[in-house]
Nucleic acid binder design. Sequence first.
DNA 1: CCAGACGTTGTT
DNA 2: GTCTGG
DNA 3: CCAGACGTTGTT
DNA 4: GTCTGG
Length: 295
Amino acid sequence: MDPETLYGVFDAVPGEPSEPGVAEPGTGPYGGDMPRPRYNIAPTTDNLVVRVRPAGEDDQPPVRRIDLLRWGLVPSWAKDPSVGNRLFNARAESVGEKPAFRRALARRRCLVPASGWYEWQKLAQGEATGGRGPAKQAFYLTPEDGSVLAFAGLWEYWRPAGADRGGDGDRGGDADPDGGDRDGTPADRTPIVSYTILTTASVGALQGIHPRMPLVLPASEWDAWLDPSREDVAELLEPPDEDLVAQLELRPIGTRVGNVRFDDPSLQQQVTPAPGAVGSDRTADGDLMLPLALP
DNA sequence: CCAGACGTTGTT
DNA sequence: GTCTGG
DNA sequence: CCAGACGTTGTT
DNA sequence: GTCTGG
């Protein structure tokens, strides 16, 4: 997706230029560089996220802001930020009870824009291919009308122990473009603002591919999800409506998407689905699937 | 009390 | 930080 | 999630 | 097999 379109889609503005721990997306149409569109996003990388208020400035009217946050939520109490490497998803069914996510669910919800997402369907070991056939089929799930999706997310602020420099964002504006500090402070002492994506049970045809899916929020729920004063989000944590899922294209794609060093539009090129995969006209054994006789 | 976890996915 | 397990 | 690494002693 | 990195 084109990152610049996101400001319009989400009625958002660029984030504060000096928020510690946040890589700058740039100001886009307001005058700076935006990150290039991405086609293969991996956990631990910085990606665009929509938030209302990155830090507690309580008086100002709510403004949606877009920043680059690290995918993989690092809890504020973590001693080592690598614990966030595995916290890139949070189950919607239990997120309110997990120590790592509970506080963020109550106070720091966010939206993660995406043009779609990838999923792997595990296939029965193909006997017809002598076991050498592909054991899995990748899919790109994307709205047929090209609209932008928003995944429900949570974000968190982490500061290394002992790093005691005060300032919650608007002071000490030393906009350091690269990760490290000028004074030689290693990167593992810099603050990190990170996020996680909620998952839920798959809906409709997606169940044939994978039992889980990201919690996709319809645009009508974006405002409520982002509103930090909203107390009861149980309704928003329910799986998406079937009609939302019915608007998605389930596009079989090649296996290169599994390797993060590939990151270009060709990853989303449609391929013939493997036998037994969703959309294939052949069974897992390679036999042609015949249409059912109608009465 | 202290120590240790704190999570999800998927199980050819 | 807060909860669970020993 | 998938891809890729996974390690020490001792230096024949 | 299991962990780390992207």
